[in-house]
Design a protein around this nucleic acid. Structure first.
Length: 496
RNA sequence: GGUUGGGUGGCCGAGUGGCUAGGCAAAGGUCUGCAAAACCUUGUACGGCGGUUCGAAUCCGCUCCCAACCUCCA
């Protein structure tokens, strides 16, 4: 019984049933990273969230074009310096070298988190022509003006001509914005403080520069996403995503630019992920309240007592809804680690099981099927991964009960178990994007398996002889080596 | 100050006006030579004050507190 996919649209501030523009197809645009420094853990959270959304849309049978940009033009920093060239000077590298270095690093990190690559990953510097064209269109439509080689978006003119739509996404009112910014800074070349640059004149020492009808310069803060989403997904497309902190001004201005250029607003559904906090506060380098993904994995940080595997972190992210702030803490990570281990162990147990019932599923088989369907249904409700996880853990309990004998496999048909296993596997590995990480690989792992088999056999012999001293000694020694032995009905099992 | 979203049991974290979210931790029990694991059972939770309602954590008002955004930021 498939349900409709509903999602929370930031634009309307309501949950809406999702209807793609073209049946069967979804155009998804997500604001990607600025590649001038190492990827931040908060970025990872956002991209993991959209990875799950991407995966789930595909699991629903949609053909998805997922576009996620790389910003390598840089934006102005406080002192007016281009970020890319700043990075270049500090690192003694070419700007494109810096961009490449951190793009590579970003891609590695996405792979580590098991996030699928997007269908198209356009770079801002590769779309200067499109951006210049867009600036020209906006000027032609009367929503921008040129001053000394820079072009500014005329927010007031735009707002008056388009039913006061500036601010519809962020809930801001133009009068309030003007009132504030008047106090904050001088107007400079802008006619109005709320106007924003869509093309900037390059000063003589600015490295990243391109020729344009307005002289040498570089594109403005928000233009790339407008230009690239339009190019690859069309003037109207389905979903635009990004972090909450991009809502204003970035996304608001993106809409203005789209409408300003071609009278189409771009995305119909806007999805915003919430922030990752640590100790209840935004991560910030300046006050030390931060941890890099690498530090989180290795445990090399004052904020964690040990390293956490990337999949434990991903699992941890799954337990919070993408629209809620997520608070990173040692205790929460510990809980995630244990929970994830329990999930993996149940999955392992499930692999060795066979349904013993007849052709018809018994009570337990039906419960398994219903629980799995419920988990999928939770995903239809605005990608509610925490609720889906709750349903999955109810299934974990049943799997363990089947293994422990509290529930009988006689209640599950062979076919029922098979399809349950397939469905659960699809959900865990394909949709939620988890993976069962082997502690060690290949030959080493095989050898260890073999050794453990021998050791456990010896211990089993000792237990049969009621030589508890020897059996306990073996177990204690193994425990000391980091290997846990668990005695079950079908013999002992072990885990690292 | 403005905008947006929050404040849920020891911790994390879902939530539909009335029915056990879930994970971790804790307590009791079953199983086990012991242990671990597993299974079963257990928690006067919903910032505060009012209101609507037969009934509110869930709706409304006020209030306190928190976070993000308003300047580049996922």
């Amino acid at each position: 019984m498939p349900t409709d996919l509903t999602l929370y649209n930031s634009l309307t501030r309501k949950k809406e049933v999702f209807h793609p523009l073209v049946p069967g197809h979804v155009g998804l645009y997500v604001c990607g990273p600025t590649v001038y420094n190492p990827v931040h853990l908060g970025n990872c959270r956002t991209f993991v969230s959209f990875d799950i959304i991407y995966r789930y849309l595909m699991a629903k049978g949609y053909k998805v074009r997922y576009v996620r940009n790389i910003t390598d033009v840089g934006h102005l920093t406080d002192d007016g310096e281009d970020r890319m060239s700043k990075g270049a000077r500090l690192e003694q590298l070419e700007p494109m070298e810096v961009a490449q270095k951190f793009s590579n690093q970003f891609h590695d990190m996405m792979r580590t988190f098991n996030a699928l690559p997007p269908s198209i990953e356009p770079r801002a510097t590769g779309h200067i022509i499109e951006q210049i064209d867009m600036v020209r269109e906006i000027i032609e439509n009367g929503y921008a003006y040129e001053v000394n080689g820079s072009v500014y978006f005329d927010v007031e003119a735009y707002n008056n001509a388009n039913e006061e739509r500036y601010g519809e996404l962020s809930g801001r009112r133009i009068e309030e914005l003007m009132a504030e910014s008047r106090e904050l800074k001088s107007q400079g070349e802008k006619r109005s403080p709320s106007d924003f640059a869509i093309w900037m004149k390059a000063s003589d020492d600015h490295i990243l520069r391109w020729d344009s009808p307005w002289g040498a310069g570089f594109p403005g803060w928000h233009l790339e996403c407008s230009a690239m989403s339009t190019k690859y997904l069309g003037r109207d497309f389905d979903i635009h995503g990004g972090g909450n902190d991009l809502k204003f001004p970035h996304h608001e201005n993106e809409i203005a630019q789209n409408v300003g250029a071609c009278h189409h607003a771009g995305a119909r559904y806007w999805l915003h992920t919430n922030m990752l906090l640590m100790n209840g506060k935004k991560m910030s380098k300046s006050d030390g309240n931060t941890i890099t993904p690498e530090e989180l994995f290795t445990g090399d940080s004052e904020h964690v007592s040990e390293g956490y595997a990337p999949m434990v972190v991903r699992f941890f992210m799954l337990q919070t809804h993408y629209r809620s702030t997520m608070d990173l803490s040692e205790e929460a990570l510990q809980a995630a680690k244990k929970g994830y281990t329990r999930l993996l162990e149940a999955w392992d147990s499930l692999q060795d099981m066979e349904g013993a019932g007849g052709a018809q599923n018994g009570t337990v088989g039906k419960e398994l099927a219903a629980g799995l369907a419920a988990a999928y249904a939770e995903m239809d409700d605005d990608f509610n991964t925490p609720k889906a996880m709750a349903r999955i853990f109810e299934l974990v309990t049943r799997i363990n009960a089947l293994k422990g004998g509290q529930l009988s496999l006689e209640e599950v048909s062979a076919e029922g178990l098979e399809s349950f296993r397939d469905g659960l596997g699809t959900l865990l590995w394909n949709v939620l994007g988890l993976k069962a990480e082997a502690a060690t690989g290949g030959a080493e792992q095989e050898a260890l398996d073999r050794v453990m088999e021998i050791v456990l056999e010896l211990r089993q012999q000792a237990r049969a002889d009621k030589d508890w001293a020897l059996s306990d000694k073996l177990r204690d020694a193994l425990t000391e080596a980091g290997i846990t032995v668990k005695d079950g009905k079908e013999g002992a099992t072990w885990s690292l």
